[in-house]
């Protein structure tokens, strides 16, 4: 059964002159790990907002077509209802944090959904442990660094146990090791069955885990497939998307007449392919 379906969905913000999304058709099945990328302003954030109903209920505008989330038409559903299915982590975490400390922040969502206190306590402690938030426990969110806020915002969203996690550049403010921590957690949750849609520019960090890569440009989906198949296309660089350096080296070598056995996504993989080629 499809979890999210866009049917010829278009959207134009009230103040804008052009469409943010143009005739999007997209099916997301349970268990997928999808990365969405594209030049800034291509519609990635709008796509995220459309999945949990912020578009069109909070951000108003012209709507064409439909988005179905767990078979519910988002046009006729409340954001509060959709939020229990699709958990959204915003690009700027400071827009998302509302309480005075980490524990309250994580508990806030489930409390509003009337989850059992015992269960809330469990989720809070579990997420504090998994996201290494212990040192921040008593810190006010507005005293935290951007990266710390981002980890707290992620925890607060995961506490809702959404069916699909929609994360809009959730690691943009993080140092690479903290980013890896979040991405490992996301991959882990995905293996346990949570569907993931992640907006990300740093494809070197995420391509290896994702099952599918969607490339957007000017409000449309321009490529959709396995990460290796999408990243090797010249289209990526033409529209300004930075592909992993290992993939770039593969393409460059190919131009010079050397074709490695496969398209690499990481440095290690590139090295392994070179060793294979040398032994062959």
């Amino acid at each position: 059964m499809t979890l999210v379906e866009f049917v010829d969905f278009s959207f134009k913000y009230l103040e804008a002159d052009s469409l943010a999304l143009k005739h999007i058709n997209l099916k997301i099945d349970p268990g997928e790990y999808i990365v969405v990328t594209g030049p800034s302003g291509c519609g990635k954030t709008t796509l995220c907002r459309a999945i949990n109903g912020l578009v069109p209920h909070f951000h108003r505008g012209y709507v064409g077509g439909h988005v179905y989330v767990d078979s519910k038409d988002t046009r006729n559903s409340e954001v509060a209802e959709l939020a229990t299915i699709a958990g959204l982590v915003f690009q700027d975490p400071s827009n998302q944090l509302v309480t005075l400390n980490v524990e309250k922040e994580i508990a806030f969502g489930p409390e509003n959904l009337a989850v059992e206190p015992k269960e809330i306590r469990f989720r809070v402690e579990d997420l504090i442990c998994r996201l290494k938030l212990e040192p921040l426990r008593d810190k006010h969110p507005h005293e935290m660094s951007g990266g710390e806020q981002q980890r707290v915002a992620m925890a607060a969203t995961l506490a809702l146990r959404p069916k699909i996690l929609v994360a809009d550049e959730p690691t943009s403010n993080l140092d690479p090791q903290s980013a890896q921590l979040i991405l490992d957690l996301i991959a882990d949750l995905n293996r346990q069955g949570m569907t993931v849609l992640l907006v990300e520019h740093r494809l070197d960090l995420v391509s290896n885990e994702a099952s599918r890569l969607i490339l957007m440009d000017k409000g449309s989906i321009v490529a959709d497939g396995a990460p290796r198949d999408v990243l090797v296309q010249d289209l990526c660089q033409e529209i300004g998307v930075g592909i992993p350096k290992a993939t770039q080296v593969y393409k460059q070598l190919k131009r010079r007449g050397v074709t490695l056995g496969r398209v690499p996504l990481t440095g290690k993989e590139l090295a392994a392919l070179v060793k294979e080629a040398r032994q062959a």
């Binding site: 140092d175 690479p176 090791q177 070197d204 290992a246 440095g267 290690k268 090295a271 070179v274």
Partner: peptide, 12 residues
């Protein structure tokens, strides 16, 4: 808490 670039990891 940094990470080496991919090309450095490949070289290593």
């Amino acid at each position: 808490s940094l990470a080496h670039p991919q090309v450095t990891l490949a070289a290593k």
